[in-house]
Nucleic acid binder design. Structure first.
Length: 607
RNA sequence: CGGGAUGUAGCGCAGGGGUAGCGCGCCUGCUUUGGGAGCAGGAUGUCGCAGGUUCAAAUCCUGUCAUCCCGACCA
């Protein structure tokens, strides 16, 4: 492609809308333009990048035997009601764009496709003889994100590859899952990205096991905890670890103490000259279920530890049935206004004990009459501990479970792991931290959707049983931006060769010099002939402008038909290393062909 | 949804009751031609929108919309 004929406009200054380097660079270099909040146009350069990524994804998916298809973006609400997700996806914090058509029918714009694919499976898969099966698509998804961010990183409209596997049983699903796991490793390696596969929370998608593929970058929205031996890595939302040991309590006798102005753990530990590990902290939450039921939750945890709200929400989801609900639609620390809604009298905030009386709760419809008391193991293990007294200004010390305080039967890990914790698989390993961009997520769904929607098949014994599913996503447009976030310098983008919009750019420093022009034309057409995707900068611009633009756009190899033409050579510059060498006009195309092939295949061969 | 900020030329920004500005970009011409050129000339505005105050509003007031950031939240 000739630059003189392209829609090509670069910006010298950073756009005001962008915050992180990759977003700034993609706008400056003319890859994307914002159309609305979280909605971006993919301009010709980016579209080529997306096609490259899609092709790699396609090849690796096809290699596993998966079949490509294209499902619908408009999805009838009935489908989502069958799976039970219509309410959670459209109400409260729901992320589905919902609309009503002229007949008054409710529809959603697809944020994900479990429902649609399960409908297809229900219609078409009848026998175990048709299994296993894996269908995938590459398509625009719509999500009404609470806060779109950072360009393509978190858009309300974005391109995703989603795959769905169907197996006869759990074992088969695990095989399908492992195939996808391998394919994802291959895809990210081929795209030239540094990444880490980590244990993950399954969130609203549901199911048992899941892993995320994190592209490592400081601007990542997720925190990853991992051990140096490579045997453990998890999203901080999911991570487990050994907490630091508690310091034995100096308080041997149960006593209530006057502790003025100590509503926080730090102030209390300081006042009592004790360790935060000797304190039982009691944190109040308010959960709302999909049936409108509200429950006040009191979480007891060791004072030096924090509650992992994802773990908490998952536990509350498991308990939904006890309150007549099926899913959590809201979880928060109740504000003062919230407290006024249900509290019979002011709460002793900062001085709450594990046995805070249920009398604080006003009887009301849609409000559980009793606190749900959850306790983390870090608190269970404590003896002679310090905790609140349910009276402002006073704490108790030397308390024990089963004596002063009943021990809740809801003992569950709610603790947030942090860097520096000892690992469970090997306590000599401590957790390290890194930031990551979630590019892929694979789930073992099991029968959640097939049961809800009646997607069954007949097994060898002639029994009708639900299909066992897995689902697997890759954020294609997010991957493109993550690649930039991971690879740029002060002058612009440095694309991995495999996903660069073009492999090479031929720069004519002086368009008025016929020798330069004709040499460039020859090389340009030769590059095209051997299948190297090339740009020709034939604009009537000064050389400096062209070099700056080539760097900014990030084309891996730059060929300059300049001064060295006198010796029958051209200059070739590697964008990533900035290495420059002069190569004879006749050698340059085969040389580039070799370099490019090496750069691409070096990434292809991985386990 | 809470907190914060910003809306003025295509982009980045200044101005702060009385003629609409700067830099970059754009157009024309000449010169220049290996790291975002120089000179000369030129075009481009509902100052987000709607009300209000005033002799007079980009500027003050009220409302509203949009965008960005932090948080809550989020496959």
């Amino acid at each position: 492609m000739r630059l003189s004929q392209m829609l090509f406009a670069t910006l010298r200054e950073d756009p005001a809308e962008a915050e992180i380097p990759s977003h700034k660079l993609l706008v400056r270099a003319g890859y994307i333009r914002r159309v609305g909040s979280g909605v971006y146009a993919y301009l010709p350069f980016l579209w080529r990048v997306l096609q490259k990524i899609s092709q790699i994804v396609r090849e690796e998916m096809n290699a596993t035997g998966a079949q490509e298809c294209l499902l619908t973006q408009l999805q009838p609400s009935e489908l989502w009601k069958e799976s039970g997700r219509w309410e959670t996806y459209t109400k409260a914090e729901g992320i589905m764009f919902a609309l009503t058509d002229r007949q008054g029918r409710e529809l959603g714009l697809g944020p994900t496709h479990e429902e649609v694919i399960t409908l297809i499976a229900r219609d078409m898969i009848r026998s175990y003889r048709q299994l296993p099966l894996n269908l995938y698509q590459i398509q625009t998804k719509f999500r009404d994100e609470i806060r779109p961010r950072f360009g393509l990183m978190r858009g309300r409209e974005f391109i995703m590859k989603d795959a769905y596997s169907f197996d006869a049983d759990e074992a088969g699903m695990k095989v399908s899952y492992q195939k996808m796991n391998r394919a994802y490793h291959n895809i990210l390696h081929r795209c030239g990205l540094a990444f880490r596969a980590v244990d993950a929370d399954s969130g609203a998608i549901g199911g048992s096991g899941s892993q995320e593929f994190m592209v490592l970058a400081d601007a990542g929205e997720d925190e990853v905890l991992y051990t140096a031996d490579g045997k453990y890595a998890a999203n901080v939302e999911k991570a487990i670890s050994l907490p630091p040991d508690a310091v034995p309590s100096p308080f041997k006798a149960y006593k209530k103490l006057d502790t003025p102005n100590t509503p926080t753990i730090a102030s209390l530990a300081d006042f009592l000259q004790c360790s935060p590990t000797q304190i039982v902290k009691n944190v109040l939450y308010q959960v709302t279920y999909d049936n409108g039921m509200n429950v006040l939750v009191l979480v007891s945890i060791r004072g030096d530890q924090d509650v992992n709200e994802v773990k908490l929400q998952n536990e509350l989801g498991r308990l939904a049935g006890e309150y007549g609900g099926s899913a959590v639609i809201g979880l928060k620390v109740p504000s003062e206004e919230d407290q006024q809604q249900w509290a019979t009298k002011p709460l002793p905030l900062g001085y709450i004990a594990p046995n805070l009386s249920d009398d604080y709760i006003q009887p009301a419809k849609n409000l559980a009459a009793q606190f749900l008391r959850l306790i983390d193991p870090t608190a269970v293990e404590l003896e002679n501990f310090v905790t609140g007294s349910n009276e402002s200004g006073y704490h108790v010390v030397g308390a024990n479970w089963g004596q002063e305080f009943p021990l809740s039967k809801h003992q569950v890990d709610l603790r947030k792991s942090v860097a520096g914790d000892r690992s469970i698989h090997d306590p000599s390993q401590t957790l390290q931290t890194a930031r990551g961009i979630e590019i892929g997520h694979i789930f073992q769904l099991g029968t959640k959707y097939s049961k809800a929607m009646g997607a069954t098949y007949t097994n060898e014994q002639g029994e009708e049983v639900p299909l066992v599913m897995g689902c697997y996503g890759i954020g294609v447009s997010r991957l493109a931006q993550a690649a930039v976030e991971q690879s740029y310098d002060k002058d612009g983008i440095i694309w991995p060769v495999a996903i660069a919009p073009y492999h090479a750019i031929v720069v004519i420093p002086n368009i008025n010099d016929n020798k330069q022009v004709s040499a460039a034309e020859v090389i340009y057409s030769e590059l095209n002939r051997v299948g190297i995707e090339a740009l020709l900068d034939d604009r009537n611009e000064r050389a400096g402008v062209k070099f700056k633009d080539a760097d900014l756009v990030g084309i891996p190899y730059r060929i300059v038909t300049g001064r060295s033409l006198q010796e029958g050579k051209v200059e070739v510059v590697n964008r990533a290393t900035r290495e420059s060498q002069e190569i004879s006009v006749h050698e340059v195309v085969p040389t580039l062909r070799r370099w490019i092939d090496e750069a691409i295949t070096a990434k292809t061969d991985v386990a």
